[in-house]
Each structure stands twice: as C-alpha cells, then as structure tokens.
C-alpha cells in the first residue's frame, strides 16, 4: 500500500494502481470520457487531468501512484486545462444533436460543457422530444437546433417550440447541418428567422448569423449532401 494525498486528504491504495483509484477512494470524482476500466486506458481524452505538487498536469486514469504523491483535483490550472480539453473535443465533434441517441439528458459532453462554461452545443441535446414528437419533425420553426443548450428546456418539455432566448449557436457546420434538418422537414428559412428575430435581432453578430443561415439553407436546398 502507498500513501497518496488527495486535496489534503490521506488515502492508502495498492501499489501499481492509478491516481483515479486513489481519487475514487477519497471520494473526489473527476470527469472521465475515454476511461473504460480494463478495456481502454490510453488516456486520450485528457478530461481527467489533475495537478501534482510539482505543478505537472497528468491524466489521473493512467498515472501510477507512488508513495507520498500529492494530487489536487480542483485548481484554477486544472479547470482551465479541462475547459480547453472540452473545447478541443467539441471542435471535432460532429454535432447532430437532433438525431443523437444520447439526447434528452444523457449527453456526457453537454454536462461537461455546462460544468466548464463552454458553449456551442445546441438545445436539442437536452430536449426530451424524440422522433415524431420532435417539433421540427412536425414542421414547426423550433429554434432548438440552432440555440445554445443549458436552460433545462422548459419550453420543449411543455410542448412549445424553442424561441431562442439563450442565444444562437454560431458554428458554421452546425448551422449547415441544422439547415439540412430544417429543410428535410420542410421548415422555411423565413419562419425560422421570424422566430429568431425576437431575441436575436439586437445581437451584434446578428447580420453575420443571418447571412450564414441563409447560406446554409441555400446549400441545403441545393441538395448538397451532409
């Protein structure tokens, strides 16, 4: 057994185990995405970064414990690093929340993004309306696909469409995919912009957003494949 100090608390774990085991024993959870027990431990997502006493940031799921190791899980550096990690992951994530099986409160990425203040995931990720109940599928100009998530969706869960009060997603590829989704359910750009104008017209980037939405719809109507 070796002695590990987690956030000032002493725990004893068997030699050869990782920091994550010590953290679990100490009851200080860190977020993990790619860690799957014995199946996969390549430390590729870097979500579980922790800070050692020498100032190094190491992945908890792969770093072996040693006697007297001091670990801190919630320092400004750790938070900043994890935030960057979420941003990186999100930047390569193919955002199609409206057709994702994890939508409706099961999205790990959304939870992390909310916890580390990273924006860019659309409302659909937490919307509880699936399949034929989806308001866009019903042909309504619900702004869910292009509105930022994080409001715990009171409108869709009560059956009324999202009116975009939380602000727009500005990533071009998301807008294009959303336009595709709108077009395939015969929702018109005019209606979407009409609903969007209530909260977004005053935004400094509204003109740019409108232009990209128009482009995205044009592209979607032109039949360009996703």
């Amino acid at each position: 057994m070796v002695r590990v100090i987690v956030n000032g608390k002493e725990v004893h774990v068997p030699e050869g185990e990782t920091i994550l085991t010590a953290l679990k024993k100490a009851g200080d959870a860190v977020p993990t995405l790619c860690f799957f027990g014995h199946m996969y431990r390549e430390a590729s997502c870097r979500m579980c970064l922790v800070e050692l006493s020498n100032g190094k940031l190491v992945p908890a799921c792969a770093y072996p414990v040693s006697d007297g190791l001091e670990v801190r899980t919630d320092t400004p550096r750790v938070r900043e690093a994890r935030r960057t990690v979420v941003e990186f992951i999100l930047s390569i994530h193919r955002i199609r929340c409206w057709s994702c099986p994890r939508k409706g409160g099961n999205c790990e990425l959304l939870k992390l993004a909310t916890a580390y203040w990273v924006e860019g995931i659309p409302m659909c990720s937490s919307c509880p309306l699936y399949g034929k109940n989806c308001l866009v599928v019903k042909g309504e100009p619900c702004l869910g696909p292009i509105t930022l998530a994080g409001c715990s969706d009171p409108c869709p869960s009560n059956g009324s469409p999202c009116i975009g009060c939380r602000g727009p997603v500005t990533r071009k590829d998301v807008l294009e995919a959303a336009a595709q989704f709108y077009v395939s359910n015969s929702v018109e750009l005019r209606d979407v912009l009409e609903v969007a104008s209530m909260f977004w017209e005053g935004l400094p980037n509204y003109d740019a957003l409108k232009a990209s939405l128009e482009d995205a719809f044009k592209k979607a109507l032109g039949g360009d494949a996703d």
């Binding site: 009171p154 409108c155 869960s157 009560n158 059956g159 009324s160």
Partner: peptide, 17 residues
C-alpha cells in the same frame, strides 16, 4: 403549468402538453 413565471403549456386552441 410548467413554469412559475410566464408558463408555456397553455397553448392557443388547447394545451401543448
């Protein structure tokens, strides 16, 4: 009604949920 202030399930023509 769904929300304390400005609830949103009483729709025009009937209920939304």
């Amino acid at each position: 009604a769904g929300r304390i202030v400005n609830p949103n399930m009483l729709g025009v023509g009937g209920l939304l949920r």
